[in-house]
C-alpha cells in the first residue's frame, strides 16, 4: 500500500509514459462541500482496447517482462474502494487513456495527498520530451502549471531539469498550493 495518494499518482503517470504519451495531465479536484476527492490522469498515449482495460485491473497482469504481477492500477483501485469511491478507466486506441480515481474526501481511510511537489519534480525528471500539466482545484479555486509554457520561456538552451529551474518549480507549486488551501 502507498502511504500517499501522490505516490499512486507518480505510479500511474509511469503507465502513461510507457504508453508513449507526449502530454500527460494530472488533475486533482477537491471539494469539501460535496465531499469528494477526485484524481484524473489523462494521456495521449497509445490507448487500450476493451479487453486490455479489463486485464489491467487484475493484479496478475502486467506488460512488463521482469515479473508476473502489475500492481499499479489494482493498488489505486483498492485505495478508492476503501474510501467509498471507485476507479474508472476510459481509453481509446490511438487517442489515449483517462484514469479517474474517486474518493470520499472526509473518509477516515483516505490517505493524505502527500507531497505533490516531489511527484511533479520526479515526473519532469523522467523523460525530457514529455509535457505535463498539473491542475489542482480546491472548491472554486484553481492552480495550474504547464511545462509547455515553462519550456517556451526557457527556450532550447536551458533544460527544465536544470537544478535552478527545478528549485523555482518547487517554490512555484508550493506557493500555488498554499494559496489554494487558504480559506
Amino acid at each position: 500500500m502507498m502511504k500517499e495518494l501522490s505516490l499512486h499518482i507518480l505510479d500511474l503517470v509511469q503507465n502513461s509514459v510507457s504508453a508513449g504519451a507526449s502530454l500527460i495531465e494530472i488533475i486533482i479536484e477537491e471539494n469539501l462541500i460535496d465531499d469528494f476527492f477526485k484524481i484524473t490522469i489523462k494521456d495521449d498515449g497509445w490507448g487500450m482496447d476493451k479487453d486490455l482495460i479489463e486485464k489491467i485491473r487484475n493484479p496478475f497482469f502486467t506488460t512488463r517482462t521482469t515479473r508476473k504481477v502489475g500492481l499499479g492500477i489494482p493498488l489505486m483501485e483498492a485505495a478508492c474502494q476503501r474510501c467509498a469511491g471507485n476507479l474508472t478507466i476510459e481509453s481509446e486506441k490511438g487517442i489515449g487513456t483517462i484514469v479517474t480515481a474517486y474518493f470520499k474526501h472526509s473518509h477516515i481511510d483516505r490517505a493524505p495527498l502527500g507531497n505533490m511537489v516531489d511527484t511533479f519534480i520526479t515526473v519532469i525528471l523522467g523523460k525530457a520530451d514529455i509535457d505535463y500539466i498539473y491542475k489542482h482545484k480546491m472548491n472554486d479555486k484553481e492552480f495550474i502549471i504547464d511545462t509547455r509554457q515553462l519550456k517556451q520561456i526557457l527556450g532550447l538552451e536551458v533544460s527544465i531539469s536544470n537544478p535552478d529551474i527545478l528549485a523555482w518549480i518547487n517554490e512555484y507549486i508550493n506557493d500555488g498550493l498554499g494559496n489554494l488551501m487558504e480559506v
Partner: peptide, 23 residues
C-alpha cells in the same frame, strides 16, 4: 528504479536526495 515496487518502497525521496546532492 521508479516502478510500482520502487515507489512503494521509497524511491521518490531517494531520487530527490540524489538531485539535491547534484545541485
Amino acid at each position: 528504479g521508479m516502478a510500482t515496487c520502487g515507489i512503494a518502497a521509497g524511491a521518490r525521496p531517494v531520487l530527490l536526495a540524489v538531485i539535491d546532492e547534484v545541485k
